[in-house]
Amino acid sequence: MSEALIITPLCDREVPANLAISMTEIVDRGMIDLRGLPKDKKFMDAAKAALGVALPTEPRTSAQNGESLCLWMSVDQWLIVCPRKETAALLDKLNKALEGIFSLAVDMSDARSIIRLKGDRVRETLMKGSSIDFTQGGFEPGTVRRMLFGEIAAMVHVVSEEPDVFDLMVFRSYAHHAWDWVEATATKGSEVGFLKPAEAPAVV
C-alpha cells in the first residue's frame, strides 16, 4: 500500500524573506471537531478518558496532553489538534468512549489550515487585521481566541510568549487570503512600533 499524500493548501507558497515576523505553515497536524454538553458528566468523563486530559470549560482556554491539544471553540465545542498520523486512532478511541452519549466527533483535519507566526511583531500584525487588542492581558500561552481577521473567520492560539508564537487557524479555502494578508501587513518597514520601536532605516 502506498502512503496517502497530503496536500496542504499553502504547500506551494514560499516563505517571504522580507518579513518582520517569521511565518510558516504547520502541516503535520490533524484536527478533530468534538461537540457535546459540558453539563453531561458522562460526556466529560468519557472525553477525558479518551483524550487523557479534561476538556477546558473556561472560555478561550486550552488543555494539553503531550502532543494533543484541546482548544475551546464554544461552550459545547472543542477542536482537538494532534499529530496527523494519530488522528484516526484518536478519533476511533473517542468514538468508542462516546458511544451512546449525545455527542459528535468528526475528523476535520482538512477543514482548516494553520499558519504559525513567530516574533516580536506578531501581536501588532494581528491587530492590523482584527478589532482585538492583543497588548492587553488575557493572551497568555494557551489562550484561544476566535475572531474576525482580515474580513474572514479565524482563530488564534497563543503557543508561547517572549518570543511570541501564535498559531493562526483559518478555513482551508481562505488560507491563501490569510497568508497574503499577513505577508502584506508584516513586511519589513511596515512596523507600527508601539510595542517595540522599529529599527532605524539603514543610512545609504
Binding site: S74, M147, L148
Partner: peptide
Amino acid sequence: VHFERWRCDRGCGK
C-alpha cells in the same frame, strides 16, 4: 428601548 436577537458570530457562535 428595543429587544433584539444577536449572535456571537466570531466567538462562541451562540
